[in-house]
Amino acid sequence: MRNISDIIEGYLKEVIELEGQGHIEIKRNELAKQFACAPSQINYVINTRFTTEHGYYVESKRGGGGYIRILRVTIHSKKNLLDEMETQIGNAIAQTNAERIIFRLLEEDIITEREASIMKAALDRVTLQVALPLRDQLRARIMHAMLQTISFEK
């Protein structure tokens, strides 16, 4: 059974697709009422599932007439996407963020399911059994190497 976060995420993605404009504007309290949940649950979904790693940009305006706008970022080229991912990785990256990037590569049809599985296995904390922060730095170096290989191969 899906949890409320999965349901809210699915709903928002569906609305973005159905609107056809690549973005939506929502009012957090109204959406919370619609799903019978706390407004903080809406924040959680937006902050964890609509990130740049997932291919979204979020902007908000606070106050009585406030809104949250979620925009689906369209990539103009594979190179632009890979360059953006290189920037997001930086000198260190947590496993969760690395997996988000891998999922985005898969979602954009840049890598296959098998390649994604191999990448996740190579970057897993069980594989990289060194102490933090060295583990996140090592993961970043491996991710950079993988992205460079992808950009030359495809």
Rank of each mutant, 00 (worst) to 15 (best):
S40D: 12
E30R: 13
G65K: 10
Q95N: 10
I75L: 01
D136T: 12
L81H: 03
I70F: 05
G63E: 08
L106T: 01
V130A: 00
L18Q: 15
I16S: 10
S40W: 07
L132W: 07
Q129M: 07
H23R: 14
T96Y: 09
E25M: 13
A116N: 04
N3H: 12
K13L: 14
R114F: 02
A121C: 01
G65H: 06
K13Y: 05
A131E: 14
H144M: 03
Q21L: 09
M1S: 12
E84W: 00
I102Y: 08
I111L: 04
A32G: 09
A140L: 09
Q129D: 14
G90D: 10
F103M: 06
A140P: 09
V15H: 07
N80D: 13
A98S: 15
Y67L: 04
A116W: 05
N91A: 04
R2K: 15
G55I: 04
K120M: 13
G65A: 10
I7E: 15
Q34W: 03
L138D: 02
L132R: 13
V126I: 11
E19Q: 10
K154Q: 03
T149L: 00
T74C: 00
L147E: 05
A92N: 12
D124P: 04
N3F: 08
S77M: 00
H54V: 01
D124V: 05
I8L: 07
T74P: 00
K61F: 05
E19Y: 07
L134E: 15
K79Q: 08
I150A: 03
E153F: 00
E108G: 01
M146Y: 12
R28S: 05
M85K: 01
T149Y: 06
Q41Y: 07
I46P: 12
A98L: 04
N43Q: 12
G66P: 10
T87D: 03
D124W: 06
I150E: 05
K120Y: 03
R114A: 08
A131K: 15
T87E: 13
A32F: 09
R104P: 03
E17P: 05
I68P: 12
A122L: 15
L132G: 00
E107Y: 07
T52K: 13
G22L: 09
G65T: 10
R125T: 12
A94R: 13
G20S: 09
R62Y: 08
D124I: 04
A92Q: 13
R49I: 08
V73H: 00
F152T: 00
A98V: 10
I102Q: 04
I8E: 11
S5N: 15
R62V: 02
P39D: 09
N97S: 07
R69T: 04
D6A: 05
K78G: 00
F50P: 13
T48G: 02
F103V: 02
A140H: 11
T52V: 03
M85N: 07
R114C: 01
A98D: 08
H23A: 06
Q95S: 04
T127E: 14
T74I: 02
N29S: 11
I118N: 07
S77R: 02
R62A: 09
S40G: 03
I93T: 04
K78H: 02
L105W: 08
I16R: 11
Y44K: 14
A140T: 11
Y11I: 06
